[in-house]
Computed example of a mutant assay.
Amino acid sequence: MAPLPRLKSRFCCLALAFTASSLLSQRDSETVLLRGLPWRLIPRLFPSEPTEPGRLQPAVASSGSSDRFLLAGVPREEVRRVAELTAEVAALGEEPLADPLTLLRFLRARHGNVPAAAHMYRDTLAWRSSFCISSVMNAFGSGGEYHRDGARATDTSKWTWAPSPSTPESRMAARHAFWGRLLAPDMEEPVLIWRAGSADYEGMVREGIVDLMIEAFVAHLEDAFQAVRACSLKSKKLLKARVIIDCKGFGFENVRYIPILRKIIVMATSYFPEISASVTVVRAPSFLATFYGLVRPLLPKMLQDKVSILGNNFEKGLYERTGLEMDSWPTFLGGTVDCVEEVQRVPRKAWSLLKSESLAYA
């Protein structure tokens, strides 16, 4: 029988992987992770305008418009419903979030149900406006132009935003962020990196910076969302990002913070539909793969196919999952690309230090 600490570590890593897997496809993952979770648990920080899905009636698309959706990359069997969704939300161009492939994401996130997809779409637009996506992206980076309502102001087939925090608050959050996007020239799909084992969850909670870190994570999700939109529009097919989670250092003491992770993932699946294709956990405890092998047959097929847990000898598995050569990996995994390097601990009296920093930049 495995010692208790090992059993606890197994639970922690699996909980983290399955939490992240809710980014894969809300159609399937919500039945695993979100069953029975009241929507009121989404923080008040993320309001949305109520809509009435029952009053929505799908419009019948003209057969003459099918070519437009086929040329955009929508699979033939989904053209009719994407056309209906386009008419339902009165989409007239690529913004706001209205190009055919992005509308396809909303449709798939709602099981192909046009009224439900329209409801999600409208809620997303309301949230983007109320959350001030444009201000968040300007605070945490540069290169992405937005209108005040959260719609892109530049060519949606190009995404040049890069992290570059410009305020004392965003600079503080950047020091403690454990996520990032891998930038490598040979990638067709974006790759997201989460150094979950390096995050100072206790310090974030102790110093009351959770809401600030959520803003920073929203900027990360928006970066990923716009990146997959751009590469999808260029490729004329629906592409998704791949998530790599480095679990080195993630122990049982962090299990108490899983609800915070789940909260932001619920937000992600509510407002960033169909963003990720797979989750690969690396540097997990060596015994975890064996344990996962035992529970894997009990999981939905979607999770079996999409979630992979690898130990310290992850090189072959990570290549098979992402298609990336080792040179394109982050340096902390043995590659040559700088991405999410050392995550700093949250200091005590963080807000007092921030005030001093603000005066220094004044």
Score class of each variant (00 low, 15 high):
F46P: 00
F140T: 08
G197H: 01
T51V: 13
A362V: 10
M204Y: 05
A241W: 01
Y292P: 00
A72D: 12
R128F: 02
G208M: 09
E52Y: 15
A216F: 01
R181M: 13
D200Y: 05
A2W: 15
L299R: 06
R345V: 13
A196I: 05
W194C: 11
S25T: 14
P5T: 04
M172L: 14
F332E: 05
S235Y: 07
F69Y: 13
Q226W: 08
P50G: 03
N313I: 04
T280H: 11
L298Q: 06
D99M: 08
A173K: 01
E357W: 12
L333K: 05
S63L: 15
N313F: 14
L298S: 04
A116S: 15
K158P: 00
E94A: 12
W39A: 14
L239E: 03
V281R: 00
C231M: 10
G334H: 07
V32M: 14
E189N: 13
L183S: 13
S142W: 08
R44A: 13
Y319R: 15
F11D: 12
L354Q: 10
E188C: 05
L288P: 00
A15G: 11
R122C: 11
G311Y: 06
A277P: 03
I133E: 08
A90L: 12
P259Q: 06
S142C: 14
L24M: 10
R256A: 09
A116Y: 06
R175Y: 06
I42V: 12
I42C: 08
L333D: 04
S130K: 11
I245E: 02
G334Q: 04
Q226Y: 10
A224F: 06
D327M: 13
R80P: 07
T331F: 05
A117P: 01
D327A: 15
R296L: 12
H111M: 07
A61R: 05
V228S: 02
S142P: 00
L37S: 12
V243T: 06
T290Y: 15
V337M: 01
D99P: 02
L333N: 02
R6N: 15
C13N: 10
V266Y: 03
P3K: 13
L261I: 00
L16N: 09
V89W: 02
G317C: 03
T290L: 07
E315V: 09
F18I: 10
L103M: 08
M1K: 12
L101T: 01
V346R: 01
V218W: 00
R283S: 03
L16E: 07
H147L: 13
L34E: 14
E253A: 11
S63V: 14
A174S: 13
V228D: 00
A98F: 09
R345F: 08
F225A: 06
R195Q: 09
S232G: 01
K236T: 03
W351C: 07
L353D: 10
T156F: 03
T167S: 09
G180K: 04
W329G: 02
R181V: 14
T156H: 03
L183F: 10
S276Y: 06
F18A: 07
A350K: 00
F332L: 07
T322L: 05
E342F: 10
P58E: 05
G144D: 10
A360I: 06
R283D: 06
P285D: 04
A117M: 01
C132D: 14
N138S: 14
D123W: 11
R181G: 09
A98M: 04
R283T: 03
L14N: 02
K248T: 03
E222P: 04
S65R: 13
R348H: 15
A219F: 00
L324E: 04
D338I: 08
L192E: 07
S198F: 02
C339K: 08
